[in-house]
């Protein structure tokens, strides 16, 4: 598995990204963040701190929140990846997204994809989290605009909506 032009090692990975099967030839050194943005055009995946502190690049791999900036793309082989682009159904926002809109939990929006995906993982784990559980789970997602209050409200609101309609 050496590219004949570049003489670099390569691998073929197969994954499901936002519900669609994807097959890609990548280098072992390729980061998930770059593959999602540059190869698949998923620009909702944001690059910010680059050291797994801020949460802007969060995606879900088999349901678990992952920093795509510090994950090798190789690691999604055989797995299911969800980005913010996969959350809405047509024009219908996911209840978590709608809660973020309704609670004004977004200002510049840069942290929002990571916040929403982390919230999805939280609510899968703990459908009706306490405020303290929300704070602990989202503690690794930084927002420089909102002061967090509206985000915490939005997560509580999303939990209520999803409990009402059955998780999707």
């Amino acid at each position: 598995m050496i590219d004949t032009t570049t003489q670099r090692p390569t691998r073929t990975i197969r994954a499901t990204v936002n519900g669609a099967p994807v097959e890609l030839v990548i280098e072992p050194r390729d980061l998930l963040l770059h593959v999602l943005r540059d190869r698949l055009g998923l620009y909702g995946v944001k690059s910010s701190c680059d050291v797994q502190v801020c949460g802007a690049c969060t995606v879900l791999v088999d349901g678990a929140p992952v920093s795509s900036c510090t994950t090798l793309a190789l690691e999604i082989d055989g797995k299911r990846v969800e980005t913010i682009e996969g959350m809405a159904t047509g024009n219908d926002l996911h209840p978590i997204q709608q809660a973020f809109v309704d609670k004004a939990a977004i200002q510049c929006g840069f942290c929002t994809p990571g916040m929403v995906l982390t919230t999805k993982a939280l609510l899968t784990d703990i459908p009706r989290p306490t405020r303290a559980e929300i704070e602990a789970y989202l503690g690794g997602n930084l927002c420089r605009c909102t002061g967090y209050w509206n985000i915490l409200d939005a997560v509580e609101d999303a939990a209520e909506r999803m409990a009402g309609e059955g998780a999707r």
Binding site: Q52, V53, T58, A64, P65, V66, S67, T71, A121, G140
Partner: peptide
């Protein structure tokens, strides 16, 4: 262990 870094680091 529940308080190491953040949820993403703890998963990986």
């Amino acid at each position: 262990e529940a308080n190491v870094a953040n949820i993403r680091v703890r998963h990986a």
